[in-house]
Design a protein around this nucleic acid. Structure first.
Length: 587
DNA sequence: GTTAGGG
DNA sequence: CCCTAAC
């Protein structure tokens, strides 16, 4: 069976274990968790009998690969980089690295897409890249992949904070310095002849090994020890930088019978949050840790994990594969509303500033209500961290602006609720915190003509007016109205033509007219190019009607629209068209 | 209260 | 369809 398909989730406990463990524990537990999977890695940790073949021979890479525990190509870009390669020649001969050039590109892409929030982008990234590029074939790849699985979500966070405009190598040196400050050997990870490690005695190497992997080794071969230490370092760096954003296929790991990495990137935000919180302040065995404090701010992050499960972000090969492209799932509306409500209450209580809070909350809500805003471009548009000061850092925002407060959830419910935050159960009459916006809103209820768009008695569960598509007769009426009243007199048109229809407001008429204009214009353009085009446009509105619209638009120029209208003066003799042209139209 | 225009 | 500034 394909393990990957079994269960794509990992429990947060498992994650926590993985991350809270010290390095050694992580590796060991992770690798030995499952017999089958462990094989390869176990071998890695087993002291080699022959240094020559220390890794390659023991490592059953193909077995791993065939089981799809990782996608070799994910790291392909990394290979071939430096001297260390030599040591692994034996292993990666089976691998194909055609994607070598892809990784940097991917990285760049990811970085560009990354959020605009830059935490230490300069210092972290270089490492990240370095190690991507330094990733070793076969054996290391495998292990790193495990590692990166663990970190995948961290990567999400980390990369999300890289400067979008980061220059790949510019700050590499800087990074190098920084890291080496904490752990000199790190610097030499790129160099097989790492001076630091070279200078270390076997005993020291043993100690390092012990602290890194949590186990003793009897191997006295310095080279072997160095190899492992270097790898360990890199693994750690990877862990810190979470460069798992590299495009990869579905990857799963079975740990203790449970598959841990999924191919789905849903709720990446949540995952990020919790993983991060788990990661924070964890000690790295070797004692260097690269600016992990950068994540401290996220410490308070909690996932909305009503689900104890977390999707790790593995990246599918699809179009939306990259995390940076992945759209976050829209949270349940109700949840949003409740969250907003909570936020509002909290803010009210804290600040006593209803108006401000209202606007703010409303904005957030709006951002959820609007599809455009809901799905902006790219990943960065979904703020992970609640920067709202009113939250005092005590809450986080799950992907789409869902604030989750800590310790503030039980606040008084007596405070105001704007209509926007009301759902059915909230619109009880005894809520009388008549805030300004609310009172302003209530005008809707008495909006003349008996067509109230929203009323408090109405079921307001859906804030957005239910979409009512315009019927052709309505369109005709609108056109008639425009014909007789002219453009812009929507209220009058409404009175004249739609008096019986309570569902069309003057604004609706205006909007529709605008759309008609656009449609007609689009039709013109399409017509010029392909005859096919008009079918799309005239799909809903007959061409004749659009023609009519155009005619009217020339008669009643519609400010802005007019300009592009004029520009498309081709067939129709617009210049001549004045009052004469607005014709027939059955009345 | 209406309208225009952006979202 | 919503929102809001401007009228």
């Amino acid at each position: 069976m394909n393990i990957t398909s079994k269960d794509s989730l990992i429990t947060s406990d498992e994650i926590a274990n993985m991350f809270t463990s010290k390095f050694s524990e992580v590796d060991l537990s992770l690798f030995s968790a499952s017999e089958q999977e462990a094989i390869g890695v176990e071998h890695f940790l087993v002291e080699p009998k022959c240094n020559q073949n220390l890794l390659g021979g023991a490592f059953d890479f193909e077995a791993f690969h065939s089981q799809k525990f990782f996608d070799v190509e994910d790291f392909s870009g990394a290979i071939e980089y430096d001297e260390i390669k030599a040591d692994f020649n034996a292993v990666h001969s089976n691998l194909t690295w055609e994607a070598q050039e892809e990784t940097p590109k991917l990285l760049e892409e990811m970085l560009q897409e990354a959020g605009d929030e830059v935490l230490d982008g300069k210092t972290r990234l270089p490492i990240c890249e370095e190690f991507i590029l330094d990733a070793k074939p076969a054996d290391e790849v495998t292990i790193l992949d495990h590692g990166s699985c663990k970190v995948s979500c961290v990567g999400n966070v980390g990369l999300g904070r890289y400067s979008p405009d980061f220059n790949e190598r510019d700050s590499a040196a800087e990074m190098s310095n920084m890291s080496s400050a904490s752990f000199p050997a790190l610097e030499s990870t790129r160099n097989q002849n790492s001076p630091v490690l070279d200078e270390m005695t076997v005993q020291e190497l043993h100690e390092a090994f012990n602290s890194m992997f949590g186990r003793e080794t009897k191997v006295t071969d310095k080279q072997w020890l160095k190899c492992h230490l270097l790898f360990g370092l890199q693994n750690q760096v990877e862990l810190d930088n979470g460069l798992n954003l590299i495009k990869r296929g579905t990857t799963s790991y079975k740990i203790g019978g449970k598959t841990v990495c999924s191919s789905s990137c849903d709720s990446s935000g949540s995952a990020t949050g919790s993983i991060d919180s788990v990661l924070v302040d964890k000690t790295v065995a070797v004692g260097w840790h690269v600016e992990r404090k950068k994540f401290a701010g996220l410490d308070t992050l909690k996932t909305s994990s009503e689900d104890s499960k977390i999707d790790l972000c593995s990246l599918d090969g699809g179009d939306e594969a990259l995390v940076t492209h992945k759209r976050l799932r829209k949270p349940p509306k109700r949840y949003i509303e409740e969250s907003m409500e909570d936020k509002s209450r909290y803010c009210k209580r804290k600040n006593g500033d209803c108006e401000v809070v209202y606007k703010e909350s409303r904005e957030k809500l709006l951002s959820v209500r609007s599809r455009k805003r809901l799905y902006p471009k790219g990943f960065g548009a979904a703020p992970m961290v609640c920067q709202d000061k009113s939250f005092k850092g005590s809450c986080i925002q799950v992907p789409f602006g869902l604030p989750v407060e800590e310790g503030h959830t039980e606040t008084d419910t007596s405070s105001w609720n704007s209509e926007d935050f009301k759902d059915d159960r909230l619109s009880s009459p005894n809520e009388e915190v008549d805030t300004e916006p609310r009172s302003a809103r209530s005008q809707d209820d008495v909006c003349g003509d008996g067509f109230s768009t929203r009323s408090s008695t109405q079921k307001v569960s859906s804030h957005r007016k239910h979409h009512i598509s315009w019927t052709s007769s309505e369109v005709m009426k609108l056109i008639e109205g425009v014909t007789s009243c002219g453009v812009g007199r929507w209220a009058e048109i409404k009175r004249l033509m739609f008096s019986s229809s309570s569902r069309r407001t003057p604004v609706d008429l205006k909007d529709k007219w605008r759309n008609l204009l656009r449609a007609s214009y689009a039709q013109l353009q399409c017509k010029r190019k392909v005859k096919q085009g008009q079918k799309q446009v005239s799909n809903q509105v007959p061409e004749s009607v659009l023609w009519r619209v155009r005619e009217l638009s020339t008669t009643y120029p519609y400010q802005r629209e007019r300009k592009f209208k004029v520009s498309c003066t081709d067939s129709s003799n617009f210049s001549a068209s004045t009052n004469n042209i607005l014709v027939p139209l059955s009345t």
